[in-house]
Amino acid sequence: MTGDRARVVVGGAVLDAGRLLAARRSAPPALAGRWELPGGKLEPGEAPEEGLVRELREELGVEVEPLMRIPGEWPLTPGYVLQVWTARLVGGEPRPLQDHDEVRWLTPDRVGEVEWLDQDRPAVAEAARLLADERMRGL
Rank of each mutant, 00 (worst) to 15 (best):
P75K: 09
P75C: 10
A13H: 01
R104K: 14
R69S: 07
I70N: 06
V103G: 01
Y80K: 14
A47V: 03
L21N: 04
A27C: 08
G51R: 05
G11H: 06
L15C: 09
V62D: 01
M1V: 06
W35H: 07
Y80H: 14
R137T: 14
P122Y: 08
G61I: 09
A123P: 00
G92Y: 03
W74M: 08
R104S: 03
G18D: 07
E73A: 01
P29G: 03
L67I: 09
G3H: 09
G45F: 01
L82N: 12
L56D: 09
R5T: 15
D4N: 12
P122C: 04
L31F: 14
D101Q: 09
L117V: 14
A87Y: 07
Q119H: 14
G12N: 11
D16A: 15
E126V: 12
A23Y: 02
A127N: 05
E50V: 14
R24M: 00
L139W: 14
W85P: 00
G79H: 11
L56E: 10
L37F: 05
G11F: 01
G3T: 11
E46K: 05
L52P: 04
K41L: 12
E65A: 10
I70W: 04
D120N: 12
P78Q: 15
R135Q: 14
W74V: 08
V53I: 13
G51C: 06
V10D: 06
W85L: 15
L56T: 09
R129K: 08
G92L: 00
P108W: 14
R54Q: 01
A23E: 08
E63V: 10
M136V: 15
V8G: 06
S26W: 04
W35S: 02
L42T: 05
V53G: 01
A87P: 06
D16W: 15
R95L: 05
V81Y: 08
A30Q: 13
D109G: 05
I70H: 04
W35N: 07
G112Q: 06
G45I: 02
G112T: 09
L97E: 05
L106K: 04
R25V: 00
L117F: 04
R95A: 11
R135F: 07
Q98M: 13
R95I: 05
M68R: 15
E58P: 06
D99W: 10
L67S: 00
R129G: 00
G18W: 00
L76G: 10
L97G: 02
